[in-house]
Design a protein around this nucleic acid. Structure first.
Lengths: 152, 152
DNA sequence: GATAAGTACCTGTACGATACAGCTATCTGA
DNA sequence: TCAGATAGCTGTATCGTACAGGTACTTATC
């Protein structure tokens, strides 16, 4: 590996670490404040239910890299708030199928819109190409992460 | 905002959310495992001390977007492990200057190298241009985040 | 220079997110 | 049919964090 490559990798490492820290802080600030609409895992659970359809706890846990017990508790909280419903899995007596409620989807969409607007504000002076490139490269980075965690 | 822009922003939002989740999981997995070398905040504290020089708790807290009490505890843990030293601030009797020890810098560098290598593995099939572009765009994204949080 | 207001740090306490271990109910393959 | 696997839940522990309050020190005002 050349020195230049080393430097670039170091920059990526730094920027990702920074991004994680900012994201944490932002989530904390906006989550604790006026909204308290959706905590971190609740949002990703609802998103995943929306895009990938109703599914059981184990599938969610595997997809989100979380322990089953964690998802159980998150789902219980979501159910308490009326954002998801549990139904017995008709094909497997052990399973429980989690589906989002209209209220849950609406709540998720509201958070999603707020975040999208936030990015729109922050990236207001970016060119269309730069935005597209960022989205693409982040997608590839995530894919690389997935491949590393689940090499097949 | 055009529909295309909206879609791109949505993609960015999605990818950042994914990245945060993967990063969490990765940190958890590598942190709990063989190493237990440095938890999240300890690593960023040591990094910051390395790049920005010795400084007091308040400065660290402000820079890391953390509560002062949180940094106090992190610093105490780092001191217990011999990775930093506390010294009275000669210019302010209330203050305490935190400096990394050689052991602390070494530990930090080891983690940093491991992470950099990890990125090198993951991005092995990326072109040099793509890597550089990712580093640059992530840097600009973080800058945009900073500007939003601390508008001046 | 006395005193009020501000600041730096620490400690007590609480909470949220998570993991692991163990439990019960159910399923599946030999 | 039954032994082992799996799905989900609950108990418990840990970690990172915030907020509130205390103490020691500093700075500004008169």
């Amino acid at each position: 590996m050349s020195d230049d490559d080393e430097i670039t990798l170091g920059r990526i490492e730094t920027e990702v670490a920074l991004l994680m820290r900012f994201g944490e802080a932002t989530r904390r600030a906006t989550g604790t404040a006026e909204h308290r609409v959706l905590d971190r895992a609740a949002y990703v659970i609802l998103r995943h239910l929306d895009t990938a359809g109703p599914q059981n706890v184990s599938a969610l846990a595997a997809r989100l890299n979380l322990d089953g017990s964690t998802v159980t508790r998150q789902v219980s909280a979501l159910q308490r708030d009326g954002l998801i419903v549990r139904a017995p899995d008709p094909t497997d007596g052990r399973g429980t199928v989690i589906s989002p409620t209209p209220a849950g989807l609406q709540r998720m969409a509201a958070v999603q819109n707020a975040r999208t607007r936030l990015y729109g504000d922050m990236l207001a002076d970016w060119s269309t190409e730069d935005r597209t490139t960022l989205a693409t490269l982040l997608g590839r980075l995530n894919q690389a992460l997935v491949n590393r965690n689940r090499p097949r």
